[in-house]
Structure formats: C-alpha cells, structure tokens
Amino acid sequence: MLSIVTFIKDLGTIRKALLLAVLLFIAGGILGWIGTGSLQQLLNEQLKGISEISGNLRESSNPQWSFFVFIFLNNSIKSVVIIFLGALFGILPAFFLLINGAVIGYLIHLSAIQGQDLFTLIVKGLLPHGIIEIPAIIIACAFGLKFGSNVLSALFKSGRGEEKPESRWPFFMRQTFTASVWIVILLLVAAVIESTITFSLLS
C-alpha cells in the first residue's frame, strides 16, 4: 500500500487534477511576474515574512539545523493539511498553488529589475531543492483538488454510469494516505538539500 509503485500508479488516476495543479502554479507565477497594486503588496508582505524568518534562523546557534527543521515541518505540515482541506471544494489547494507560484514569479521578476544575478537565484537558490519540493507541493495540491472534485461529485452526482475507482471514498482515502507518506518523504529530502547544498551555495 505504501510502495513507491503504488504511489506512482495513484498519480496516474489523478492526471487531470495534476495538470490543473501545474497550470494553476504556472498561472500564479505569471501573476506574480506582472503583479501590481494589492497583489504586489501581498507578495511583498510574503517575502518580508520569509526574510524575517530566514534572518532569525541564521542567528540561531546552529543555522543549518534550524533551517532544516523549519523548512521540513513547515512544508510537510502544510502539504498534508492542504490535501484534506481540498474537501472544501478544492478552493484552498487552488489558492495555495496560485500564491506559491506568484511568490516565485514575483521574486524572480523583482530580482531581474534590481539587476541581481538570476543564475545564482534560480540555479543555486531554487533548483537544487526546488526540483523536488515544487513537484511534491503540486502533487499534494492535486490530491486536494481531486478531494474537492470527489466532494462535488458526491453532492451533485446524477446516479448515471458506474463510479470510477478513484472516486470511491475508501479507495481515495487510501490514496491520500499513501500520497501523504511519500510527499513527506520527498519534502524531507528537499529540506536536507535546502539546508545543506542550497545553504552552502548561497552563503
């Protein structure tokens, strides 16, 4: 039930939700890049908060360990919770994807405007851990979107046709449990990379 093969097969049953999650994340990135007005203010507050947390962690007695613990707990808890919050018609996973994409898009655009080295930001600052962390978050949100879709189907189903296996609640709840375990594992790996390799590259 918890094998990587099962997890990969489960991903195949939520292909539409995965595609939608990717599109929402990209849309968020575009919105962040062109963001103005209230959106720009919101994103500035997000980056300010991240900067303050980063500063506090760097001042701790063991910065790398502090970064690891914070990054892992923050990402893993949010990602697992967002799966089940998807029961609220998939609204919160969609918002989570848009905001996360927007923060990255805005950060890259802001850095470009300020003349900062984008190679350092993207290749050294985002890519080493992001290549695992971002897909893991997208997968979590995709399951959240599927959760919302299943809730809507249960509320408004017409009763026609045979129900797909992935829409049956026992089957789907097993999927979410398997997904939660593997998402946490992926985010653990990403946190190790971010608190070691990324930390060293940007120091």
Rank of each mutant, 00 (worst) to 15 (best):
S61H: 05
S61W: 02
N62Y: 00
N62Q: 13
N62R: 13
P63C: 09
Q64E: 14
Q64V: 01
Q64K: 15
W65Y: 07
S66V: 05
S66H: 04
S66N: 10
S66C: 02
S66R: 04
F67G: 03
F68H: 07
F68R: 01
F68C: 03
V69D: 04
V69K: 09
V69C: 02
F70T: 09
I71G: 03
I71L: 12
I71Q: 03
L73E: 00
N74G: 11
S76E: 03
S76L: 05
I77C: 10
I77D: 08
K78T: 13
K78R: 15
K78I: 12
K78N: 13
S79L: 06
S79M: 05
V80Y: 00
V80T: 07
V81R: 12
V81A: 15
I82F: 08
I83M: 13
I83T: 00
I83R: 02
I83Q: 08
L85E: 05
L85N: 05
L85Y: 11
L85T: 05
G86I: 05
A87P: 04
A87G: 14
A87T: 06
L88T: 13
L88Q: 09
L88G: 11
G90T: 06
I91W: 08
I91E: 05
I91K: 05
L92G: 12
P93I: 02
P93D: 07
P93W: 09
F96Q: 13
F96T: 15
F96P: 11
F96G: 08
F96A: 14
L97T: 09
L97V: 08
L97W: 08
L97P: 04
L98N: 01
L98C: 09
I99L: 15
I99S: 13
N100F: 07
G101M: 10
A102Y: 08
A102F: 11
A102E: 02
V103K: 07
I104Y: 10
I104M: 14
G105H: 11
G105E: 07
G105M: 09
G105L: 11
Y106P: 11
Y106D: 06
L107M: 15
L107I: 09
I108W: 04
I108A: 03
H109E: 15
H109A: 15
H109S: 15
H109Y: 14
L110N: 14
L110S: 15
L110D: 13
S111Q: 11
S111V: 02
I113D: 13
I113E: 14
Q114K: 14
Q114M: 14
G115V: 03
G115Y: 05
G115W: 00
G115S: 04
Q116L: 13
Q116A: 10
D117N: 15
D117Y: 01
D117C: 04
L118S: 03
L118V: 00
L118A: 01
L118P: 04
F119P: 00
F119N: 11
T120S: 13
T120C: 00
T120K: 13
T120L: 09
L121D: 03
L121M: 07
L121W: 00
I122P: 02
V123L: 06
V123T: 00
V123I: 11
G125I: 01
G125V: 01
